[in-house]
């Protein structure tokens, strides 16, 4: 059994469990023997320089990339090794905030925010109501019918986070969530993430320089594929 960087109390079931995980891309070991546990409602921040493996770690947890060796369990499942139905169900329990997942430029802000609800089959009345409430929570209510192109970078970042949180996921995985964000948006986003964690959502944030204080956050450092 490899040493865990952080071990949960025995009574807490881990939401994320990595044991000796290795991910190789090409000839490079992007993640080197990572062992890690994160419990429900934890808010963790992973700092690291560009190329340190943060995005790979987030994608590993999301089931977008697979580990070459080691054990990966997220929300009690092995992300990459499930059937179509289980994979769909697993993804609906996640709140993803990745640079690759941009906003839909041919949909308005409300439609962008409620996408996870609509994909999960929520009724029109339900997604309209929850969508407007969420946009108001993120101070975007007045922009509900605007296209994302009309928003500032900070507003777009808030909208992406609103989309990641609207369906109350069990786990939020965010890669560089605060890039190009103004101070006002940063405050709103941190507050919403802290609130989500307080309500039981596990939040994992990865970024180059996430040194700012987020209430209740535990900080880790990823350096050359090793979690420190």
């Amino acid at each position: 059994m490899p040493p865990f960087l952080f071990t949960l109390a025995p009574e807490r079931k881990p939401v994320i469990l990595l044991e000796d995980c290795v991910v190789v891309r090409g000839h490079k070991e992007v993640l080197k023997s990572v062992s890690w546990q994160v419990g429900a409602g934890d808010l963790v921040v992973i700092n690291g320089a560009a190329g340190s493996g943060k995005s790979t770690l987030i994608k590993l947890l999301a089931g977008i990339v697979s580990a070459n060796s080691g054990r990966v369990e997220v929300l009690g499942k092995v992300p990459g090794a499930t059937s179509d139905t289980e994979r769909t169900k697993f993804r609906r329990e996640l709140g993803l905030l990745l640079p690759e997942l941009d906003l839909m430029d041919d949909a308005n802000c409300l439609e962008n925010a409620v996408l996870p609800l609509r994909i999960a089959g929520a009724s029109s009345a339900d997604w309209h109501a929850r969508g407007m409430k969420t946009l108001l929570d993120f101070e975007l209510g007045h922009l509900a019918l605007q296209r994302p192109e009309a928003l500032s970078p900070g507003e777009q970042a808030r909208l992406r986070l609103a989309r990641a949180l609207i369906h109350r996921p069990a786990l939020v995985l965010a890669d560089e969530p605060f890039a190009q964000t103004d101070a006002g948006s940063l405050q709103v986003m941190k507050a919403r993430l802290a609130l989500a964690a307080a309500e039981g959502t596990t939040v994992v944030l990865a970024g180059a320089e996430l040194r700012d204080e987020i209430a209740g956050a535990r900080h880790f450092r990823l350096s050359e594929g090793r979690l420190l």
Partner: peptide
């Protein structure tokens, strides 16, 4: 394709 990737990663089923 960016939209379809978004849909799939947000849990869009193969049926949809």
């Amino acid at each position: 394709r960016a939209t379809w990737r978004l849909f799939i990663w947000l849990g869009c089923s193969p049926a949809m």
